[in-house]
Simulated scan of single mutants.
Amino acid sequence: MSTESGHSAPTAHNEKTVTNRTMDAAVAVLFMALAAVVMSDSWRVGASWASDGPQAGYFPFYVGLIMFIASTVTLVTALVSRHPDLGNFVDRSQLVSVMQVLIPTTVYVGLIFLVGIYLASAVFIAFFMWWLGKYPVAKIIPVAVGVPLALFVMFEIWFLVPLPKGPLETALGY
């Protein structure tokens, strides 16, 4: 589709969302924050050399420091480059696809804290099978119930590894 000026009209596929430069800077800042947390906690537990060798936080502190320096270089490069990469980081259609997975997954993680991992997993599996997979309910229910049940047996009974429980598991005595 062309406009009177001869340029193509933007479509959902080629609409601008965010530039590569912006994403480089944003990810660099996030990694700098993560590195600062690693360094801070490593310093708290001891990040120097003791008489018997390195303290518990020695190596994590320096890994965090390297991460922080590398992220700072990336941030400075993104901000002061003479030829910044202003290309589109992601098309709208690609962003929609990512959000279709990211948002429900974020809700799933939140549900784990409210109802436990097994019920949250059943809801998560059922939702994705229904919404994106378009499966019939007769296929959704056995999978959505069977997978968390199999994981429960494997982790809680066989391996004796407790996973986050919610009110349902607590009411059932687990």
Score class of each variant (00 low, 15 high):
Met1Trp: 12
Thr3Trp: 14
Gly6His: 08
Thr19Cys: 00
Arg21Glu: 05
Arg21Tyr: 04
Thr22Val: 07
Thr22Ala: 03
Ala25Gly: 06
Val27Arg: 05
Ala28Arg: 03
Phe31Gly: 01
Ala36Gly: 11
Val37Gly: 00
Val37Pro: 05
Val38Met: 09
Met39Pro: 02
Ser40Tyr: 15
Asp41Phe: 13
Ser42Ala: 13
Ser42Lys: 01
Trp43Arg: 10
Arg44Leu: 12
Arg44Glu: 11
Ala47Leu: 08
Ser48Arg: 12
Ser48Tyr: 12
Ser48Asp: 14
Trp49Leu: 12
Ala56Asp: 12
Ala56Gln: 12
Gly57Phe: 08
Tyr58Gly: 04
Phe59Glu: 08
Val63Gly: 00
Ile66Leu: 13
Phe68Asp: 02
Phe68Leu: 06
Thr72Asn: 01
Val73Gln: 00
Val76Lys: 02
Thr77His: 08
Ala78Pro: 04
Ala78Tyr: 05
Gly87Cys: 01
Gly87Ile: 05
Asn88Ile: 06
Val90Met: 05
Arg92Met: 08
Gln100Cys: 11
Leu102Glu: 01
Pro104Cys: 04
Thr105Arg: 02
Thr106Met: 10
Tyr108Asp: 06
Ile112Met: 09
Leu114Ile: 02
Gly116Phe: 03
Tyr118His: 09
Leu119Val: 15
Leu119Gly: 04
Leu119Tyr: 01
Ala120His: 00
Ser121Pro: 01
Val123Ala: 09
Ile125Pro: 02
Ala126Phe: 11
Trp130Arg: 12
Leu132Trp: 13
Lys134Asp: 00
Lys139Gln: 15
Ile140Met: 07
Pro142Tyr: 11
Val143Gln: 07
Val145Asn: 01
Gly146Ile: 10
Val147Cys: 01
Val147His: 05
Pro148Cys: 07
Val153Trp: 11
Val153Ser: 02
Val153His: 05
Glu156Asn: 10
Ile157Lys: 10
Ile157Cys: 07
Trp158Met: 14
Val161Cys: 08
Val161Met: 13
Pro162Arg: 12
Leu163Tyr: 07
Leu163Trp: 07
Pro164Arg: 09
Leu172Glu: 06
